[in-house]
Amino acid sequence: MTAGTAGARARAIRRDLQIIADMIEPGSRVLDIGCGDGELLYHLVNFKDVDARGIELSQDGVNACVVRGLSVIQGDADTDLEDYPPGAFDYAVLSQTLQATRAPRDLLGQLLRIATRVVVSFTNFGQMGTRWRLVWEGRMPVIGGPAERWYDTANIHLCTIRDFQELCQDLEVVVERAVSLDRGGRVSAIGKIGPFANLRSRQGIFLLRREDSAAP
């Protein structure tokens, strides 16, 4: 495949990744934290001409990314972001990673330091299904599929959309966009949280900006 030619046809990527990709300006500098095998980065490099970098905890993920020609290092989101200088990126992306970090609040602070804008996507534990599992079945909700157990999940800091909005207020960040993705893959904007948005949404995807950074 050749970058930027008419022959390059965007392959379908995961729905939530597509929503994130749509939030990112072409030609910008992007750091994807917890980039997995590089699905989002590959899309951004080839179809949005982005200067893309990644950090991934698993060495297998890193190797898969480098094989695809992506610039990715093995590293830990909780500890390795402090190496980067302030404002090094236009966007930092934290896709389905927040809940697996040891200190999500500190991490968000780091992301807002090294990037002008931060995109965060996370599983909403306020959704109906998880409430049902806890209230009616009396069991802890898990999000990693049926094989996942509470004692071996990587997801240790769980939040709801309402929780996350509160954190954004605490950190005094501007929420430029917030959308939710429901079970059927439908996307809706999250405004002032209504009682139903938190129940319906499977995932929240937020585009954040530091209060002191310039608006577009």
């Binding site: 060495q59 610039s71 990715v72 290092i73 390795d80 190496d83 980067y84 200088p85």
Partner: peptide, 18 residues
């Protein structure tokens, strides 16, 4: 070296081979 390159906002990949 990777740490230093990150501090310089360099374009860097790093692979540890088992």
């Amino acid at each position: 070296v990777v740490k230093a390159l990150n501090a310089a906002a360099a374009n860097v990949s790093f692979v540890e081979v088992k």
